[in-house]
Amino acid sequence: MFLTKLTVNVTSREFRRDFADVHDMHRTVMSGFPEVTSENPARLSHGVLWRLDGTQSGFLLYVQSHTQPDWGRLPAGYLAQPAEIRSIQPVLDAVTAGRRFAFRLVANATRAIKSDPLPDGEVRAMRVPHRKPEKQIEWLARQGERHGFVIPLATNGQPDLAPSPCRPLRGRIRQTSGNQITIEPVRFDGRLIVTDPDAFSAALRDGVGRAKAYGCGLLSLARTQ
């Protein structure tokens, strides 16, 4: 598996377009990968996850994939520096039960609510974002149960985790008659402990939560004391 760090040129007209429309950003990310002939979407076939992180000087675009990308297909001037690509196999090899990591995750933390009955009596489930920090932390704890990790307690007795809101992601899917995309992601920075190495490795490869095509779900790790 590969992780790419792309230092974006914030003056690029194409980047400003992508920044305004998350579907355009998705298409730009996928331009680094070959087309597929299978019925699976290209993102799934290449195992692509991505995240746009703001910095003091601009933005870094991180892209994880099963397939080694070719960023020569990006628009001219899109990058401020050459792409940096490395294998994340050492990270996967370090996953063992009880291992502690610092982590960052931008996720689409949502819950399902029932809509009012339709004229035919059907009741549909709608997904709405968690906006309260305590509910966001509970959401991630449930994800940990599924994906083989727990959030330890900090010295203050609270989960060692800091959720913070991200700017809403909006866009328009032109291939489906202009359907609107609206996502309210949350960024989690904290520490975790691996409880199930197989489930956790799968979460690293496949992502956590929904909206993985639109900049959510990429779990980034760092060593911790």
Score class of each variant (00 low, 15 high):
residue 179 N to S: 13
residue 133 P to L: 05
residue 163 P to H: 08
residue 174 R to L: 13
residue 98 G to M: 01
residue 118 L to I: 00
residue 170 R to Q: 12
residue 184 E to R: 09
residue 87 S to T: 15
residue 91 V to G: 02
residue 111 R to S: 13
residue 106 V to C: 13
residue 165 P to H: 10
residue 125 A to R: 15
residue 211 A to P: 09
residue 97 A to H: 04
residue 182 T to I: 00
residue 159 P to V: 03
residue 90 P to K: 05
residue 109 A to F: 04
residue 86 R to A: 14
residue 185 P to W: 05
residue 190 G to E: 01
residue 87 S to C: 10
residue 72 G to T: 08
residue 87 S to R: 02
residue 86 R to L: 06
residue 169 L to Q: 15
residue 98 G to V: 06
residue 169 L to E: 12
residue 197 P to S: 03
residue 75 P to C: 01
residue 95 V to W: 00
residue 209 G to W: 12
residue 196 D to Y: 07
residue 110 T to A: 09
residue 137 I to C: 01
residue 133 P to V: 07
residue 191 R to F: 05
residue 209 G to I: 06
residue 121 G to F: 03
residue 215 G to W: 12
residue 186 V to W: 08
residue 150 V to Y: 06
residue 205 R to G: 01
residue 134 E to G: 03
residue 79 L to F: 04
residue 183 I to Y: 02
residue 123 V to W: 01
residue 84 E to W: 00
residue 145 E to F: 07
residue 77 G to P: 05
residue 113 I to F: 00
residue 184 E to T: 09
residue 136 Q to S: 10
residue 117 P to A: 04
residue 104 R to P: 14
residue 91 V to T: 13
residue 69 P to H: 09
residue 199 A to L: 12
residue 109 A to C: 14
residue 128 V to L: 15
residue 98 G to L: 02
residue 212 K to Y: 11
residue 159 P to L: 02
residue 145 E to V: 13
residue 157 G to K: 08
residue 178 G to W: 13
residue 164 S to E: 15
residue 169 L to K: 15
residue 171 G to P: 10
residue 160 D to V: 01
residue 214 Y to N: 11
residue 194 V to S: 08
residue 86 R to V: 12
residue 123 V to R: 10
residue 144 G to N: 05
residue 201 S to F: 00
residue 205 R to A: 12
residue 141 A to E: 15
residue 120 D to C: 09
residue 114 K to L: 15
residue 86 R to S: 14
residue 180 Q to D: 04
residue 86 R to N: 04
residue 106 V to G: 04
residue 74 L to Q: 06
residue 85 I to C: 07
residue 167 R to C: 03
residue 77 G to N: 13
residue 76 A to W: 01
residue 79 L to C: 05
residue 156 N to F: 07
residue 216 C to E: 08
residue 144 G to Y: 13
residue 117 P to Q: 07
residue 114 K to M: 12
residue 72 G to F: 04
residue 174 R to E: 11
residue 97 A to R: 15
residue 155 T to M: 07
residue 181 I to M: 15
residue 150 V to D: 09
residue 127 R to K: 11
residue 108 N to P: 14
residue 156 N to R: 06
residue 179 N to T: 15
residue 120 D to M: 09
residue 112 A to N: 14
residue 107 A to F: 05
residue 102 A to N: 06
residue 70 D to C: 07
residue 96 T to I: 07
residue 127 R to A: 09
residue 89 Q to G: 05
residue 125 A to N: 10
residue 151 I to A: 07
residue 84 E to N: 06
residue 186 V to F: 01
residue 72 G to E: 10
residue 91 V to R: 00
residue 156 N to Y: 06
residue 135 K to E: 12
residue 81 Q to G: 02
residue 75 P to N: 02
residue 214 Y to P: 00
residue 131 R to C: 03
